[in-house]
């Protein structure tokens, strides 16, 4: 469903994404990992059709990512959700429904279902300007799902969510994937990737370092510890230095313990 082939994105002299290949099939939950500035958000923006690749192709369900057809298949939850301050949550959901040209009766039921799913009943008729970050995040999740997308792209999914909402969202990801949706999730929280993802892709300096199931990654890197150590080994090979840490030998010890 998501097909990123040989994609490069340059910002002037800086290469943010370098010949990256990525494929997410229908029914698959793919976790996209990488350090800050690795090129995750740039890749996601190209998948959502917000940035044009300098080279290569990005296709959603066989359609070019920037096409209207691709946007109809896609649900996107950005890391910084946008809501209209002067709309209520319900009005915002209705607006999204209208934009996708959905059948009014069916979409009304869908809106009610999502309000129930994300437990928004208490505040969905208040103006969005009064919402907390977590409330906003829930409305944005609901709006991304309201048109029953075939591809769900989520950038940092759990920012601002309380444990209960986070659980709902995590369950939702799995269920979306099991019902045939391709889910691409970019995150810094390795535990979530470990818990939910069918496959994991690790990106650094704009290049895909490794993709595969957790077991495949472990066997490829010859490392059988937690995902955190695997991630650090792939992206830097060592634990980072902590300035002012009294025991500077920690890094060496740790490196030694891995070998």
């Amino acid at each position: 469903m998501i097909d990123v082939h040989g994609v490069t994105k340059r910002f002037g002299s800086k290469c943010a994404v370098d010949r990256l290949d990525l494929e997410v099939k229908a029914g698959e939950l793919f976790a996209f990992l990488g350090p800050n500035g690795a090129g995750k958000t740039t890749t996601i923006k190209m998948i959502c059709g917000l940035l044009a690749p300098t080279a290569g192709t990005v296709r959603i369900g066989g359609f070019e990512a920037s096409s209207l057809a691709a946007r109809q298949l896609l649900g996107y939850v950005p890391d910084q959700p946008y809501l209209y301050d002067k709309l209520t949550g319900r009005e915002f959901l209705r607006f999204v429904v209208e934009m996708y040209g959905l059948d009014p009766d069916r979409s009304a039921r869908r809106v009610l279902e999502l309000i129930d799913t994300f437990e928004m009943g208490d505040y969905v008729d208040d103006l969005c300007e009064s919402y907390s970050q977590g409330m906003k995040q829930r409305v944005v999740f609901a709006s991304a799902l309201v048109h029953e997308p075939r591809v769900l792209v989520v950038d940092e999914p759990l920012v601002g969510l309380d444990p209960r909402s986070a659980r709902i969202v995590k369950d939702l990801f799995v269920q979306q994937a099991r019902s045939g949706c391709a889910v691409l999730m970019s995150t810094h929280l390795l535990a979530i990737a470990e818990e939910l993802a069918d496959r994991i892709g690790i990106v650094d300096h704009g290049r895909m370092l490794a993709t595969g199931t957790l077991d495949e990654l472990r066997s490829r890197v010859q490392h059988h510890g937690p995902l955190e150590d695997l991630f650090l080994k792939l992206t830097g090979n060592l634990r980072p230095d902590v300035v002012g840490l009294p025991d500077s030998s920690m890094k060496t010890q740790h490196a030694g313990s891995r070998s």
Binding site: A26, G61, G62, F63, L68, A69, A70, Q72, L73, M99, Y100, G101, R110, E113, L114, D116, T117, L145, E148, P149, R150, I168, D171, L172, Q175, Q176, S179, G180, C181
Partner: peptide
């Protein structure tokens, strides 16, 4: 209750039909 997507009963081309 969790809202699930329409489980692929419609083809991609039908879903992506221009609005």
């Amino acid at each position: 209750s969790l809202a699930l997507p329409n489980s692929g009963s419609e083809s991609l081309a039908a879903v992506a039909e221009p609005i």
